[in-house]
Design a protein around this nucleic acid. Structure first.
Length: 874
RNA sequence: GGAAGCAUAGCUCAGUUGGGAGAGCAUCUGCCCUACAAGCAGAGGGUCAUAGGUUCGAGCCCUAUUGUUUCCACCA
């Protein structure tokens, strides 16, 4: 037996314990088809990332579930890995090169990818080692990367299949373009934010000289690409001008007035300028009216050379210049302040520029249908349920997914073009020759959206498209744990992907958690500088404390705040447990723990065993329903309030009286209970529970708590009667303490107590010791009637306790106090009597509730009787 | 514009089939009582946002209102 250090100092053992687990291979499952599996795939963190609180929460929850299920006997797999994060990583490499004075074009595609891989090798493992510090029990032998060989093969396989099924197509569409990242991005990757802008009221002259048409725009610079002006066909005001021709000032282009339903009559002047190349709605209008699409901007959002006066100006400079020119030429009517939503790139925050270009798309509707159905029919469950509304809304209104990116870091699109005959082929091969003319084909230079590979994660990591044992056994996975912020990006895409390629859902439950905010409720962000580094927290307080702080008081789907108070409370709890274990250890001389025969158990033992059994039942049921925070606080309450504050105190006498039978029983029971506490707590706080467990080599297997069995509810155990006996004692001790405190009697001043009771099984030699040590009694004695000197009287439902302390008893005050108590009890009695007199209540309420009320009434009646006797005796 | 969450003690939050309101922190009082002052024993503090409704019974279910946060749409 080794000794525990005097204070809880997690840094001393966390790392050592973790590497021991790894060495023993506990995280790697041995596939056993006779056992049920439980598997989770990690939401792969970006290789650019550093562990932040969001990761810490996400992975703490996963580890709790995994460790719980592992201890429950499931064959358990948690697949770890990282995501290549194409835009984010590419941006970092570009930035690093910029510092060297290099651009992408300077180094070329191959040179760039070399740098990217080197970067991945250098930093990609950083977050993995951070996950280990947290205690994550991932199977590191199965670690994956979205761009490793297998995952890349899965990506190509999917692309080819979807293409052959007509679900991937290439087309010229208006897409969201980031002028900073120089790539297309999907609808999901656009973030809208309110910005202060202006409404410029402008007029265009009619060609025939019959005046002007007025309208307003937030983006005057796009007028260079205007190819129409639209009004609503039902708008009486403009009925006569539909079909007339306008002249676009500055460019002198002739454009028609068209009628289109898209225009809202009562917004602004009811007239909209149409720029098909630079606005998605205008693009649609343009298609309906066969309008030309005139692109006026370069990829980095500068005006093209077609407009020499503005060429090379970026969109905002051009806006100023054009407004100035319009004003000078008399076309600007007025300018209003206007606050409106502007789409920005979710990676760099640059205002998105809608742009017409040739891109690859996934046809979503046929894929979305079964994915919606799987959630609707309960095949896949969101926890909490309300998130299915989010999901349905997104999936039911889904538009085709733009998957091509003008980036180099990522999965290159497996499409090939023949420069001679224009043939297009899609293939997994690295080199492809034109099926028509035999010429070597040119591969599409673009890469795929990062989320395209993430969508395959639950099965690509298990080996798909190969038929592997892992895939066969562990798929579908069980629980997916993630934040609500990526349901659309990721969860929805995994669902339709799993259904489409595997023919099976990827997981059965999606456990959604919220964001970790700072102590003021703000999002943690780099720009605010309010981020809390989980690694610093681990260094200072330990990984267990961090995990506890994240898991407790947190309910599914809700954001939580992180604060010093929380982490300190968590650390204090760890310290409490630590010291409780130290206390137990310093009283042990047994070699092995065996639960004594029922007949040998003391009353307090039966009480704690009953309480423990109840705890086991409710913790398991909370965990089974993903109520992780509740499960943890149940354990917390048990450890602190029941085990430490009461059971340890109750056991001190028997534990210290060596050489007796009672002592052996006590040692065995307290160690047994502690062992169960450690096991119950292990999924939440793996390190401290292991450290203590290994320090107490009395348990059934002390190799590691990780591979021990999670405590099971014992249906045959029933000490509820003994529990009542014990609780009468506890209630009475508490009442004595309250009275003593009220009367300012210091604990050091002991006094003899006399007990009048009708419960001799609660108050006798076996419990008097408790009163001596926990209620400052110098001696305790049961009497049929108290006849001594003036005494302080303490009345409970179980007994009346007399403490003769004549000098501090003020008869008048005592009378007043007792009358006050009587009043309270009477009102309670009245309330219950009224309730029980209500026929409807007795008839309709469940029997247990009615019985409960009756029991309470009985207790109050007993208390009342005690009070009345006390008043009479004064 | 559409949808959802939240509103409970001074602060931060739990409270899952509807059955007498809880924790942590903070505050106050008293304690170094053979594990723990990162502790022990106590205390105070709540018309559970407001107004209706359903029910024998509502913090919990329904309706409306107010405040607040978020997601989606993107009306130029």
């Amino acid at each position: 037996m080794k000794e525990l250090a005097k204070t809880y100092s997690p840094a001393d053992f966390e790392e050592k314990i973790y590497s021991n687990w790894c060495e023993k291979g506990y995280f790697t499952p041995k596939i056993d088809k006779s056992r049920p599996h439980y598997s989770i795939v990690i939401p792969p963190p970006n290789i650019t990332g550093q562990l932040h609180m969001g990761h810490a929460l996400d992975n703490t929850l996963q580890d709790i579930l995994i460790r719980y299920k592992r201890m429950c006997g499931y064959c358990t797999l948690w697949v770890p890995g990282t995501d290549h994060a194409s835009i984010a990583t590419e941006a970092k490499i570009v930035e690093a090169m910029r510092k060297e004075g290099l651009t992408k074009d300077d180094v070329g595609r191959d040179g760039f990818l070399k740098r990217a891989w080197a970067w991945k090798e250098q930093y990609g493992g950083r977050i993995i080692s951070q996950l280990k510090k947290l205690g994550s029990s991932c199977d590191w032998t199965r670690e994956r990367f979205t761009m490793d060989e297998g995952c890349s093969d899965a990506v190509k396989e999917v692309f080819v299949r979807l293409y052959n099924n007509g679900l991937i197509y290439r087309g010229e569409r208006i897409i969201n373009w980031c002028p900073h990242c120089l790539t297309s991005i999907s609808d999901a990757e656009v973030e809208y934010e309110e910005q202060d802008g202006h409404f410029w009221h402008i007029k265009y002259p009619f060609k025939d000289g019959s005046g002007y048409l007025e309208f307003a725009t937030t983006r005057p610079e796009t007028m260079l690409g205007d190819t129409a002006v639209a009004v609503n066909p039902k708008d009486e005001r403009y009925k006569d001008i539909v079909g007339k021709t306008l002249i676009v000032p500055l460019v002198n282009r002739e454009i028609p007035v068209v009628a289109d339903e898209y225009v809202e009559m009562d917004f602004g002047t009811g007239v909209v300028k149409i720029t098909p190349a630079h606005d998605p709605n205008d693009f649609e209008v343009g298609k309906r009216h066969n309008l030309p699409v005139i692109n006026v901007m370069t990829p980095d959002a500068k005006i093209t050379d077609d407009y020499p006066k503005y060429a090379g100006m970026d969109r905002y400079e051009a806006r100023k210049a054009i407004v100035k020119d319009l004003k000078e030429q008399g076309y600007l009517i007025k300018v209003e302040d206007y606050r409106h939503n502007v789409g920005t790139c979710y990676r760099c925050g640059t205002t998105v520029e809608p742009r017409v270009s040739l891109q690859w798309f996934v046809k979503m509707e046929p894929l979305a249908k079964p994915a919606i159905e799987a959630v609707r029919n309960g095949d896949i469950k969101f926890v909490p349920e309300r998130f299915d509304k989010n999901y349905f809304h997104w999936m039911e209104n889904i538009r085709d997914w733009c998957i091509s990116r003008q980036l180099w870091w990522g999965h290159r699109i497996p499409a090939f073009y023949c420069d001679d005959c224009g043939e297009i082929t899609v293939s997994k091969d690295a080199e492809v020759f034109c099926p028509k003319c035999g010429k070597k084909m040119r591969q599409d230079p673009d890469t795929l959206d990062t989320w395209f590979s993430s969508a395959l994660w639950p099965f690509s990591t298990l080996g798909w498209p190969k038929k592997t044992e892992d895939l066969d056994y562990f798929y579908p996975t069980n629980t997916l744990v993630t934040g609500y912020d990526i349901i659309t990006f990721w969860v929805s895409r995994m669902i339709f992907s799993g259904l489409e390629y595997m023919g099976k859902k990827p997981f059965d439950t999606v456990l959604i958690h919220g964001l970790v905010r700072d102590s003021l409720g703000r999002k943690m962000s780099k720009s605010l500088g309010n981020g809390i580094d989980p690694l610093l927290i681990i260094d200072k307080y330990g990984a267990d404390a961090l995990r506890f702080a994240l898991a407790t008081g947190n309910s599914p789907g809700n954001d939580m705040r992180f604060s010093d108070e929380k982490i300190e409370a968590a650390r204090n709890f760890a310290n409490k447990l630590w010291n409780a274990a130290r206390f137990v250890m310093m009283h042990l001389d047994i070699e092995k723990v065996e639960l004594p025969e029922e007949s040998e158990l003391a009353i307090q033992d039966k009480w704690i065993l009953q309480k423990l059994n109840e705890l086991i039942k409710s913790v398991r049921s909370s965990l089974d329903s993903y109520e992780i925070g509740i499960a943890l606080s149940e354990i917390y309450d048990f450890v602190w309030d029941i085990f430490c504050d009461w059971y340890i105190e109750l056991s001190k006498t028997t534990l210290s009286e060596k050489g007796t039978k009672a002592n052996l029983v006590s040692q065995n029971v307290i160690t047994y209970v502690l062992e169960n506490i450690l096991k119950l707590l292990h999924p939440f706080m793996p390190f401290i529970t292991e450290e203590i467990y290994l320090s107490l080599p009395h348990f059934e297997s002390s190799e590691s708590i990780m591979i021990s069995t999670y405590p099971e509810f014992d249906i045959t155990l029933d000490f509820s009667g003994e529990c009542e006996i014990m609780e009468r004692v506890i209630d009475t001790i508490k009442a004595v303490r309250v009275r003593r405190t009220e009367m300012n009697v210091p604990p050091s001043r002991k006094a003899k107590i006399f007990i009048v009771t009708s419960y001799p099984d609660s108050f006798n030699d076996s419990t008097f010791d408790f009163f001596k040590r926990l209620a400052s009694a110098s001696e305790a004695q049961v009497v049929s009637e108290y006849t001594g000197a003036n005494a302080v009287q303490i009345i409970t439902h179980a007994a009346t306790v007399y403490i003769p302390m004549a000098e501090i008893v003020d008869i008048e005050k005592e009378k007043a106090r007792l009358n006050g108590e009587l009043e309270k009890v009477n009102s309670e009695i009245l309330r219950i009597e009224k309730k029980l007199a209500n026929e409807e209540f007795v008839k309709k309420a469940p029997a247990a509730v009615v019985e409960g009320e009756k029991a309470k009434l009985f207790k109050y009646e007993s208390t009342k009787k005690g009070i009345l006797d006390a008043i009479n005796s004064l």
